[in-house]
Computed example of a mutant assay.
Amino acid sequence: MQSNGSAFERADPTPLPPGTRIAMALEYQGSAYRGWQRQDKPHVSSVQAAVESAVSHVAAQPVSILCAGRTDAGVHASHQVVHFDAPVARSAKAWLAGSNALLPNDVAAKWVRPVCEDFHARFSATARRYRYLILNQARRSAHLVGGVTHFDLPLDAELMHREAQCLLGEQDFSAFRAASCQSLSPMRNIHFISVTRFGRLVMIDIQGNAFLHHMVRNIAGVLMAVGSGQQSPGWTADVLATRDRTKGGVTAKPHGLYLVDVSYPDDYDLPKQSPGPEFIRAFVPA
């Protein structure tokens, strides 16, 4: 039986044969990167390039990595899942420790697992979960810069929560997708969404089968407009019904957005843990 990914877990030192498919969980602070996806220009940094460089050094040859969900510039992850096919014999311990020794300080591998060859970080996933963190106070915080979105008008978190419930279920989210979104369908299924206040921190917690480009940030922007009284209650449903992105107001900033969980069928037996980001676990229940 596999570990649940606890803070004191030790990766298995048993060598794995070449060709083993490896699943890896990552966390990263996205402020310094132009998003997850590797860029054509070598001077433009991406999380994918940083991870591939580290894993390739461990393998002593190039390794390509695929992720569960591509995060945008400035967006963070406390639980991104990737996979790659190991070109050489290495243990899970070697992949984990070696990668962490070579990764930049704002990217870390959390665990490594061998998985069956039909596992795919993106296509095997059944759900993604995001949290959007809003520091709701008059002044910004120097210590939380880049890690939260600062909003200086009072927010009614209970109203925002009620407002958000119209987004549940499978619906057309055209009004919440970026103009540059390349998805073939605007249909997405939202499993749950909640808005909760923890002191001066307001958290939007949302899970769905998948998300359109900028979808969570556009939802956050609409909910903040209603919660601050800049728009009337019911505006979220009105925007959704238009299926028109131009009716949905501004896109919320990326700083407060975290990919916090990716769900897979139990058959893959991947570690489970409470969603992050880690610095708010003392305040937010699992």
Results as ranks from 00 to 15, higher is better:
226 V>D: 08
151 F>S: 05
150 H>C: 13
123 F>I: 01
243 R>V: 09
196 T>P: 02
200 R>P: 01
167 L>A: 02
151 F>T: 01
29 Q>I: 06
182 Q>Y: 01
199 G>H: 09
146 G>Y: 03
156 D>W: 05
182 Q>T: 14
229 G>A: 12
20 T>V: 02
237 A>R: 01
206 I>W: 04
215 M>G: 08
186 P>E: 08
61 Q>C: 04
72 D>G: 03
205 D>E: 00
147 G>H: 05
80 Q>W: 14
110 K>D: 12
128 R>D: 01
150 H>E: 10
77 A>I: 01
230 Q>W: 09
237 A>Y: 02
229 G>Q: 08
126 T>Y: 02
259 L>F: 15
233 P>I: 15
86 A>G: 11
70 R>N: 09
220 A>W: 07
27 E>C: 09
217 R>M: 04
185 S>R: 10
143 H>K: 06
50 A>L: 00
211 F>K: 03
205 D>G: 00
59 A>W: 07
110 K>I: 14
188 R>S: 03
75 V>M: 00
100 N>G: 10
59 A>N: 13
44 V>Q: 07
216 V>C: 06
78 S>G: 08
154 P>M: 10
278 E>Q: 14
67 C>W: 12
253 K>M: 15
232 S>G: 05
158 E>D: 14
156 D>V: 00
47 V>E: 06
184 L>A: 15
187 M>G: 03
20 T>H: 08
133 L>I: 03
21 R>S: 05
104 P>E: 14
